[in-house]
Simulated scan of single mutants.
Amino acid sequence: MYLIEWGLWKLCTESEVERSATEAETNSDKHISDVYETELDEEMHFKRVSKSPRTRGPVFAINDTFLEMRCGASEEKRGLITIATLGGILPMLLTITFGAIAFLYLDIKDPSAISFTSALTTIVMTLLDITLIYLYFRYGFQLTRLEIFTSRHLLIRFNRKTQQVHLHRPQYCGGIVTLPWKSTGSTATYPEDDSLSHGMRLGLVWHPSRTGLPHMESALLGKQGQGGSELRDEWEFIRRYMEEGPDAIPRPRLSTQLPSPIQAFSAQFEGMSRFLRNSSWLFKVILLMVWPAFVILGTAHWVSLMLCWRPRWPKVIREAGLPGKPVPPLTTLADYPPDVQERLLANADRWQLKPGKRPEKEPRSPHARSAKNEARS
Rank of each mutant, 00 (worst) to 15 (best):
L104R: 14
D110C: 09
P111L: 10
F116Q: 10
F116E: 11
S118G: 12
A119F: 09
L120W: 11
T121A: 15
I123K: 12
T126Y: 05
L127G: 14
L127S: 14
D129I: 01
L135S: 06
Y136M: 08
R138L: 05
Y139K: 12
G140V: 04
Q142N: 08
T144P: 04
T144G: 09
L146Y: 00
E147K: 08
R152F: 03
L154R: 12
R157K: 11
F158V: 03
N159D: 10
N159Q: 12
R160H: 06
Q163W: 00
Q163A: 11
V165S: 06
H168M: 13
Y172E: 08
C173T: 06
G174K: 00
G175Y: 01
P180C: 04
S186P: 00
T187V: 01
Y190H: 11
E192N: 12
D193V: 00
D194I: 05
D194F: 00
S195G: 14
L196G: 12
H198C: 13
G199C: 12
M200Q: 15
L204H: 05
S209R: 12
S209I: 07
R210C: 08
E230W: 09
L231M: 14
L231S: 07
R232S: 04
D233S: 14
W235K: 03
W235C: 06
E236H: 06
E236F: 05
E236A: 09
R239N: 13
R240Q: 14
E243W: 00
E244S: 15
D247C: 03
I249N: 09
